[in-house]
């Protein structure tokens, strides 16, 4: 039972992070808008959900979509601020956004200061409290919905517009794409998913504190996304699983976890910058060949 619980918990964390990483992948992988502050959007969602349920007694089932919505709006704002900025200025602005949000979480008492908010309630369905497997089921359903949204975006004009903007903004404009609108949307959708993940995070860990949403966390999310392959549907999910599972396997090396994590990231980016499943990567070429062999 104990061991079962361990795997369930691990799986829940993977799915929650995967939702946020999928969102980041929409902003950065599809639309090419660098976002180094994704953790702040998780934080916005987590605190929204925690405050709504704890201080206003609102049901989790309403707080969850509201968290997504508030993060979506925050993403629109960051997108609107960033519209005119060139690449590195944009990167810096998103870093700044992350630092500002963390400072705000730490400073204003409503967010519980450095201890954060304790005792975020578990969701209930017909009076039945969701924990363990049932919480996993909830997270899995929401993960699937987000995955479907992701697949749908990839096949819609929206996704095509995102990719066009990533490849060349000027050309996109002359082909009838309102670049500003789509950039704002790219940030908003990515942030909205992070907000949903944040709500699930809050009600699972039952504690929300500023230290979970720092810039270092944003970099971790980004490394999950890049590890799997930016701009692919399944890469970010696999990347998330790997980044979470690997340190668990090498538990004796736990003390050196951050060293391992950063070293892997550096080596991978240096030699396989498109990620494990990205276009033209070693694995992708192998898999394509393999599938090709089958078709013959």
């Amino acid at each position: 039972m104990q061991i079962g619980m361990y795997y369930i918990t691990l799986l829940i964390w993977i799915l929650i992070y995967a939702i946020a990483v999928m969102g980041l992948n929409i902003t950065m992988g599809y639309a090419g808008q660098v976002n180094l502050g994704q953790a702040a959007f998780i934080g916005i969602g987590a605190f929204t959900s925690a405050i709504l349920t704890m201080k206003f007694g609102i049901s989790f089932w309403i707080a969850l979509p509201l968290s997504g919505l508030i993060s979506f709006i925050a993403g629109m704002l960051l997108g609107a601020i960033s519209i005119r900025l060139k690449y590195d200025f944009l990167a810096m602005t998103t870093i700044g956004f992350n630092f500002i949000m963390v400072a705000i979480f730490l400073y204003y008492p409503i967010f519980g200061g450095s201890f954060g908010l304790l005792g975020v309630p578990r969701p209930r369905i017909f009076g039945y409290k969701l924990t363990g497997v049932t919480y996993l089921a909830l997270v899995f359903v929401i993960f699937l919905i987000c995955l479907l949204v992701n697949i749908w975006i990839e096949r819609s004009w929206l996704g095509l517009a995102f990719e066009a903007i990533r490849e060349d903004e000027d050309a996109a404009q002359t082909l009838g794409i309102d670049v500003k609108k789509f950039k704002v949307l790219a940030f908003a959708i990515g942030a909205g998913m992070a907000g949903i993940a944040g709500s699930l995070y809050a009600h699972f860990s039952m504690r929300v504190a500023y230290s979970d949403f720092t810039f270092a966390k944003s970099i971790e999310l980004l490394s999950m996304c890049i590890l799997g392959g930016l701009g692919t549907v399944y890469g970010p999910i696999i990347g998330t699983a790997l980044v979470i599972i690997l340190p668990e396997i090498f538990r004796p090396l736990r003390q050196y976890r951050l060293i391992m994590h950063t070293l892997i990231l550096i080596i991978l980016l240096r030699f396989q910058p498109q990620g494990l499943l990205g276009k033209g990567s070693y694995l992708e070429t192998k898999i394509k060949k393999w599938i090709g062999g089958f078709q013959k």
């Binding site: 660098v34 990167a91 270092a216 970099i219 980004l222 951050l258 950063t262 070293l263 990231l265």
Partner: peptide, 22 residues
């Protein structure tokens, strides 16, 4: 990595900083 997208050296650089500090 000069010919790669700008986020790649940027993230490598952040990782190197975190690594050095650790």
């Amino acid at each position: 990595l000069l010919d790669k997208p700008a986020y790649i050296p940027l993230i490598i650089s952040i990782a190197v900083y975190l690594l050095l500090a650790e």
